[in-house]
Design a protein around this nucleic acid. Structure first.
Lengths: 412, 412
DNA sequence: CGTCAGCTAAATCCATTTGATGGATGAAGT
DNA sequence: ACTTCATCCATCAAATGGATTTAGCTGACG
């Protein structure tokens, strides 16, 4: 059931709206804010005063006069708040500390040789986080919490990860609670693609305002959906599941039993396999693939490098995968009616141009795209660390965006 | 840019929330409303008074006491408001008058032999609407407006239909303005699938609360998306485009050039064609198909009847189409993370069970569906007239649902 | 060439309005 | 006597419109 509002919430909402407007524009005056948000000058004035008092924004100079008193410009105070972001991946845990402006003020990478015991990983991440915070001289009173980006389906009600692919032993683990206990911080949890989308929304300014579909390529493929500046979470907190979008069937079986799911065709392991099967040992040797199951990380790096160097075999298999991503993206973009698709994720490094090209061609084929609005396809503005930065953004977003809340409150 | 709120809007919003709660529950007391909406007893009391004064709800008896004073129950007043809905289709225009409870209090069907001139159609529909309103003795002061459900992409900014498939001569026609001029009523315009979804949301009560994906089969295939009781319109007002979802490619070319778009495989004409190609003249004769291009309506009726009577050939081709709808629905449901899919549209009559079966199997295959929440697949609660009733609901929705507004205001 | 009145735009002050809230009170039952 | 529902009343929070202050621009006049 839809729930009602009250006055305090209106206040909070308007504050969030104004903060959002300052963030996405970079630098604005109060009058401009009033025009942008539809609020009165007076209201903007009041809201801005509160934000100034809270240390979240600062006055940053004057605009040239347009005949009368000059406008005083407002900007976000980067040191107004900060958050920790943790991107969990079978391969490694990336930890970042991000300030209110989205700047990374410290980062660490923990190799996770063999996923291992969740409790152990949580412990190591928590200790590393503590050291990182000390070294970065973060004002603890301005530290809002810790965000986690994890692969695979989540159970929002328990703050647990459910059966993440390639993450044996991590099923039904109450990650949010464990991190809250280990760090004493409020914790937010979301899947990696959604976290990445929130990161883009938070950091990308005007280029990521409105609506977009974020396609994330990591160990698997996922999507994060932002509609009207609002993040879509879905009934169970798993919106953006992209791996089960239908594509041209081949001979790869999804764990759901279908032969036409996108997921199994576009993982790094699958593309490496494609290269071996379609182009043989010669091509593999030329590129430098070992071809053993536990060298996927290395092989994938080599394959991407080869594709970037225009190796025909590498380009071919990447393009095949890109084509399937394009098919799925076409359906998603037309279903959601978004006019922007953003590509990101660590598995994409170097091969963005190929993927971009195919996706762009696919999403712009539909009649709506051609007659009413074209769809822009762009790379992540954050880059390699979208996962971790996105995780941190979960916290910033939870605190300063209208209508979302943290999973766990401050424990104790 | 996200816009701010103010006090009046809060009031309006809370009124809409309470009205919505009364509508979806059917009959509730004030205290229950307070619990459902999170508002105070006092606030509910105030809001309800306003709704009573406005003639939108009525007190309808007392609940049995639970130890103290009995609760007075509230229901929607069906005669509190009404709206006209027009479903435009190449085949016919269906006009209905719907009251606040969603009851159809009058309807007409205009055959459109050969789509013809838009201006002429608008004129005929307007005149028929006038007569229909007179006959149904509708209180004009309580008539909120006219809603139009049209196929094909729309241009929200101009209130025009853009290049609707099978609707030659209707491209870029400013339908909303034309109807507003012809009837003097405020007009709302949306595509047929979205209108149908809004209709379900408006009339379906508790069964259509929350989030769902509505798959509409008319001349083409489309979808309407309701997320958290809010209708998704999309950047250009064309959310729910379902015909370009990727499915297993065959030999049918979409007008966008792709071979793997859902649309061309599931239209009645395509399924009829399938029957002829896969099962030959014998089967076609047995079913009673003429097989000429302009007898699609008749043939489709015959084919559906045959499928309902378990004719193996008819069932086969329907099931093939259903399977592809299922593939697309699987992707959409997992992308949006909805736990309910609703099927409707006039082309579906009689063959719902087959479609339902295939769609249900497909959407419940994914890991999220199996481990976290199952997806229910259901028929429209409105039935055959979803299009027209949905069109009328556009108006009701625009007036009494939080956060949406009419395209054209009262002209003059 | 300076300067001061008149103008404009930005930001704020103040009184008012709207809407939700908590506590007390009345109403209708068991 | 006790419950539960519903409303009354005083209060509080937030936005609003209009007046006011602040700050800079412009141009005419000495």
């Amino acid at each position: 059931m839809l729930s009602g509002t009250n006055l305090p919430r209106v206040g909070g909402y308007n504050q969030a709206v104004v903060l959002d407007a300052i963030r996405t524009t970079g630098q604005v005056s109060r009058v401009e804010l009033a025009a942008l948000t539809g609020l009165t000058n007076q209201t903007v004035s009041n809201v801005v005063r509160k934000l100034l008092d809270a240390g979240l924004v600062a006055e940053s100079g004057q605009a040239p006069s347009s005949g009368g008193k000059r406008r005083t410009l407002l900007t976000l105070r980067a040191d107004g708040a900060c958050a920790v972001g943790v991107h969990l991946d079978p391969e490694a845990a990336v930890i970042v500390v991000v300030d209110l402006a989205g700047e990374v003020i410290g980062s660490r990478r923990l190799r996770l040789t063999d996923p291992g015991d969740p409790a152990d990983v949580v412990d190591r991440v928590a200790r590393t986080t503590g050291r990182l915070l000390d070294r970065s001289a973060v004002d603890r009173t301005r530290l809002l919490g810790l965000g986690i980006a994890a692969p695979g389906p989540l159970d929002g009600s328990t703050g647990a990860v459910v059966a993440p692919p390639n993450f044996p032993g991590w099923g039904r683990v109450p990650l949010a609670d464990m991190f809250a206990d280990a760090t004493g911080l409020p914790v937010a949890l979301d899947n990696d693609a959604t976290a990445a989308a929130i990161g883009e929304r938070w950091i990308g300014g005007a280029d990521r305002a409105g609506s977009f579909l974020f396609i994330y390529l990591g160990t698997g493929v996922g999507a994060g959906i932002v509609l009207n500046n609002t993040v879509l979470h879905g009934d169970s907190g798993n919106a953006g599941e992209f791996g089960h979008m239908a594509v041209e069937p081949g001979d790869r079986v999804c764990h759901c039993g279908a032969m036409d799911c996108l997921g199994p065709y576009v993982s790094p392991a699958a593309i490496i396999d494609d290269l071996l099967r379609l182009h043989g040992r010669t091509a593999a040797d030329r590129i430098g693939l070992t071809g053993t199951p536990d060298s996927v990380h290395h092989d994938w790096k080599a394959l991407r490098r080869a594709a970037r160097a225009d190796d025909p075999a590498a380009c071919d298999v990447v393009r095949r995968a890109a084509r399937r991503i394009g098919e799925a993206a076409r359906g998603a973009a037309s279903l959601l009616d978004v006019s922007r698709v953003v590509l990101g994720g660590e598995a994409l490094r170097g091969i963005e141009p190929i993927i971009r090209e195919e996706v762009e061609a696919a999403v712009n084929r539909t009649s709506v795209a051609r007659t009413i609005r074209a769809v822009a396809v762009e790379q992540s503005v954050i880059g390699e660390t979208v996962g971790a930065v996105g995780a941190a953004s979960l916290v910033l977003h939870g605190n300063y965006a209208p209508g979302w809340r943290m999973l766990t409150d401050v424990p104790g």
